[in-house]
Computed example of a mutant assay.
Amino acid sequence: MFSKFFDTLKAKGLDVTLSEWLTLQEALDKGLCNSSLTQFYYVARMILVKSETDYDKFDLAFEEQFKGVMSENEVTSQMLRWLDKSDMMELAHEEARDHLNRMEEVQIDKEDVEEKFKQRLKDQDSEHNGGSYWIGTMGKTSFGNTGGNVGGVRVGGTTGYQSAFQVIGARKYRDFREDKVIDNRQFQQALRRLRQFSSRLDIPKTELDIDATVDKTCNNGGCLQIVMDKPRKNAVKLLLLMDSGGTMIPYTTLLSELFQSVHKSNHYKDVKTYFFHNCIYSKLYKTPECENGDWIDTEWMFRNLDSDYKVIIVGDAAMAPEELYSTTGNYRGPNGGLSGMDWLLLMKRHYKKIVWLNPKMAPGHAPWREAETAIKNTFPMYKLTVDGLNQAMVKLMVNK
């Protein structure tokens, strides 16, 4: 069983070394887990997982490996469906806030609650909402979610009173994953990688050069000699092109976060942002509404934004083949006599550094997504996740 667990961890993407695995075996030999699956979980995670970003991968591997192990506290998928009352969460939160304002300290017998919970799992055969006995929702029972009981076992749902001493059915570390779709803070952290400092600027020497000051002071017998230098400025110029509308509508919030992050970053020499729908054609729009007339010529961009701009294209590449290959494939505006692929090839020819970020990129080779596959063969494409964005930023900064 344990050798298979090692294989499962590796399959989920965890970098477990042989030394770490032998350390876990030693912990088992010394009885540190006390024949408890729960204690084994924590001991194994402590030894085998190096970063909190991998906690969710570990949880998935652990669940896959040990899901057949008998447990008195096992919660079925049917039970979790009964307890899914996400549409009533706002009402529950309001009641929770009101209740907590009046609540005094409560003493809870945890062992008694856990024993009753085990018994309810064995006996319950239907959904329950309200009440004070079964595992359910919106009631006074110690088991379930969105109820009025303080202390107990939360099963499914989201936190209400924040007083449950045990939570079952929640992947608590999902948001720590590096392959999750990202938020504003993570955008800004990744964008900081786009730095290419230059001091060859015609500006005053206003920045203290610490190394040169130390050297000159030492050479002057310890008598302080201040050396100033021109401040280094980021020479990176960024061009952001974003797909808007249609199949990108579900990612509107994500694109807004990226747009705000780019424009909050004040360390670029220049930033330009334009929009397109499905594919780049002869016009690029100034706003995400992509309204006819509110655009610039793509050829104007080539003439005025030189090849030193680093280009980030964001889109799902989800279009019909004719939108990519036909000279009349742009149903919302002019093609300029060229197909979408022709315009993309012009982009590749003009700009030295281009990456494509895709919020729903298919893994590997995806012949059923013809347009995406063609664009993958034209530009380096990365999924719009923490890992993907970091890889894309590194790609933009390599010298080759």
Rank of each mutant, 00 (worst) to 15 (best):
E90P: 00
E90Y: 04
L91V: 08
L91W: 02
A92W: 00
H93M: 13
H93A: 09
H93F: 05
H93V: 07
E94A: 13
E95G: 09
E95S: 10
E95Y: 07
A96G: 15
R97Y: 04
H99Y: 01
H99M: 06
L100Q: 11
L100R: 06
N101Q: 14
N101W: 07
N101R: 13
M103C: 14
M103S: 14
E104D: 12
E104G: 14
E104M: 06
V106T: 15
V106Y: 05
Q107L: 10
Q107D: 13
I108R: 12
I108M: 08
I108T: 12
D109K: 01
D109V: 00
K110Y: 09
K110H: 13
E111Y: 06
D112S: 13
D112R: 09
V113S: 07
E115S: 14
E115L: 06
E115Q: 11
E115A: 15
K116G: 15
F117G: 03
F117D: 03
L121D: 08
K122P: 05
D123H: 04
Q124S: 09
D125S: 12
D125I: 04
D125E: 11
E127G: 01
E127K: 09
E127I: 02
H128E: 13
N129Y: 05
G130V: 07
G130E: 10
G130A: 10
S132F: 11
W134V: 04
W134C: 11
W134R: 10
I135L: 10
G136S: 02
G136W: 00
T137G: 08
M138V: 02
G139A: 07
K140M: 13
T141S: 15
T141V: 01
S142V: 03
N145H: 10
V150S: 11
V150N: 05
V150F: 14
G151E: 08
G151R: 02
G151A: 06
G151V: 03
G152P: 08
V153L: 03
V153P: 01
R154I: 03
V155Q: 05
G156T: 06
G157T: 02
T158V: 14
G160H: 02
Y161D: 14
Y161R: 04
S163Q: 10
S163A: 13
S163V: 00
A164V: 01
F165Y: 11
F165S: 08
F165Q: 07
Q166L: 12
G169F: 04
G169Q: 06
A170G: 00
A170H: 05
Y173T: 15
